[in-house]
Design a protein around this nucleic acid. Structure first.
Lengths: 383, 383
DNA sequence: CCCGCATCTGACAACGTTGTCCAGGCTCTA
DNA sequence: TAGAGCCTGGACAACGTTGTCAGATGCGGG
């Protein structure tokens, strides 16, 4: 059934197995450029493509009709007698024919698919976002192709360009990098593009983000309102836009309250649990420990919750991003929640409005956050 | 830049806007058949495809070389002088050319993409699974197209067939339905296929599942070992294979202990939080309430944890599937954990081995589960 | 000077589908 | 029954790419 001698190496093999004379492609070109494939293996056995899938021609031959008639039946176009249609449908069923959308795309110019590039599919924040995008795409008859950038700008670009090469009709991108000029030719060529969660860099495009600054400011102000003055902040690298905004919100709230932030209260750029744990413990130790912590994202929050569970209770906590079961912990975890699904839905809807042509100038949309009080953020200062 | 008069309706428009004479396609054909598109709108403005993207021909003209030479440069094939390559590369950069993979696919027969059909991308169980599949795909140079079936067999089939029409090289499917004969022509045509989490129906294919039966049996036996005899079971519809297997495990453990299961101890097919809540409350009420509950999946577990938190403590709980922060609750939630990432990784690796041709007969792989004791499952019976 | 050889280049067909266009047969009317 | 008009069906080109193959060029040796 399967050709046991061939090996899987899609889109990469060249005709001669002879590599002697291959030039190593120069990489010193600037800007937008084609990166040649790098892997080379033995050429595949020729022929036998798609495992010899039947084509419309085969169906036509079997049904004793013309090619175009089959096409008409397959696409439900008018102009075929019931009798002819029956014959064609019979041939289709008998042969197990399935239309080849690659060829269709080539002809029609639309792929009915959109690309989604996010940071990590496994992150619970992106699940609902991804699903929301999918639902909107589905409503518009489009499929979703997605990939994780793993927070690596190069990988983001690689992914985005691969999607463009497949001629996705549109792109929803959660940027990892901060320079998206590489997308200019694509946008010019008509690829609808929306950036989500973080703004695009160096390019004018639609952006859908949460109010990271306002959310963080409100969250920290909430702690201040409950009497805290020494408030710690643990967040991601400030080169990530959301992290920077939330840090800015923290600073703004502190400044509004006339509090001078100590350097030892802030931990930036640590995300792996072990180092977050150490950062939190340091803040909570010493002669003048923080009495509250504001955490910059869901992963940090989870770790800090663990740390606080081990320490003598007392330190208050407000986290950015909601986490599951937060209401069941004692105390419940107060969070600044953003609506991941709404981000995805809004972005996707804008994308399809671009494709409809009902959208003109790029815009920046900011969705509000919501402070959810559950207990941990309402604890009074212990010291 | 964008044509403001066109509307987005990919792959669906027919030439005449005239619908008068359209036959409604008969649907009484059995088995595998082509479903014609159903939506019809005004025809798009012709021409201007891809927003006039440059093609290799354009690049060739600009660089003053032949078509094939451009192809050679783009694909890093040998046999081009550095000078010629420079000129071509310059033209590519100037025009913002990007290879059209649709055409490439049409020519080469491989799409370098695999499809993943799962139940719900937003479910935290599928995030890591999906990510794992993606990583393996990436290692093999393939992209991931995925869709959610929402537990609807018809939608599953629709999705799978759409992916096949796009000629994905392989499919990883988490089945919603129990009859996959519709895939026969595809498998025969060489589409590699692996089913995950639940077995395929009516078709001989690779399957990767967790040991749902054994895991559930062990979990329930764990409760029995801690002195429980009246143990409730709340699970999903038994038509879902995993749910049926876990129920079977529950029954087996009870039988092994010589306990006769009462009908009122079991709640099958309820998943929405409200009804799960009611089911749990009923089990916990009455003259002879259950002293422990075994929950059939993560969503049910979460709801039952909420219910138990409100009730006078005492009922023990073991849940199938791990949940985040389970260790921080008081008591911690004891679970039968399955490794979602391992499921995805194993399935994807098998898929690519099929594509390599190094795999012969379809096989069923069962991954072990792990009992994680955290407290809730070790509580003694209260009554 | 011519031949052989190696290297580089380009013309051309093919991949499977859809849009265009025309032909042939039918019905309906005058 | 002829002519007009409609309905059905099919031949053909085109979409953008890659594989095949043959032509062009340059070089060294006889």
């Amino acid at each position: 059934m399967l050709d046991a001698t061939s090996s899987y190496n899609p889109m990469t093999d060249t005709s001669p197995a002879d590599n002697r004379s291959r030039r190593t492609p120069v990489d010193d070109m600037t800007g937008h450029r084609i990166v040649p494939d790098t892997t080379r293996r033995a050429a595949r056995t020729p022929g036998n493509r798609y495992g010899n899938r039947p084509t419309m021609k085969d169906v036509a031959a079997r049904a004793g009709v013309g090619l175009k008639t089959v096409s008409r039946v397959v696409n439900g176009e008018p102009g075929v007698t019931p009798e002819t249609e029956r014959r064609v449908q019979e041939a289709i069923d008998a042969l197990g024919f399935r239309r080849n959308d690659s060829a269709r795309v080539l002809r029609k110019g639309r792929t009915a698919s959109i690309g989604l590039v996010l940071e990590d599919l496994a992150d619970p924040f992106y699940g609902p976002l991804s699903r929301a995008v999918e639902e909107v795409a589905r409503a518009h008859g489009a499929l979703l192709i997605n990939g994780s950038s793993a927070e690596d700008p190069e990988r983001e670009q690689e992914l985005v360009l691969a999607l463009c090469a497949r001629r996705v009709d549109g792109l929803v991108v959660i940027p990892a990098g901060d320079d998206h000029r590489y997308l200019e030719p694509e946008v010019k060529a008509g690829v609808a593009t929306v950036f989500v969660d973080r703004p695009a860099g160096q390019i004018d495009a639609d952006v859908v983000v949460s109010d990271n600054f306002g959310g963080a400011r409100d969250g920290v102000a909430h702690l201040i309102a409950h009497g805290h003055r020494r408030i710690g902040f643990i967040g991601d690298m400030p080169r990530i836009h959301t992290a920077a905004e939330r840090l800015r919100g923290y600073r703004a709230a502190m400044e509004d309250a006339g509090i001078t932030v100590q350097g030892s209260w802030m931990s930036l750029g640590v995300t792996d649990p072990e180092r977050v744990r150490r950062a939190a413990e340091e803040m909570l130790a010493g002669p003048r420990p923080v009495t509250a912590i504001f955490t910059g994202n869901n992963r940090v929050t989870v770790t800090v919750v663990r740390v606080l569970a081990e320490h003598p209770p007392g330190a208050a906590l407000v986290g950015f991003d909601d986490i599951e079961l937060a209401d069941l912990l004692r105390p419940g975890v107060t969070v600044v929640a953003q609506d991941a699904a709404a981000l995805g839905r809004t972005a996707a809807e804008r994308l399809f409005r671009q494709l409809d042509g009902t959208l003109l100038a790029p815009e920046r949309i900011e969705l509000p956050t919501r402070l959810v009080t559950r207990g941990s953020g309402e604890l009074p200062p212990a010291h």
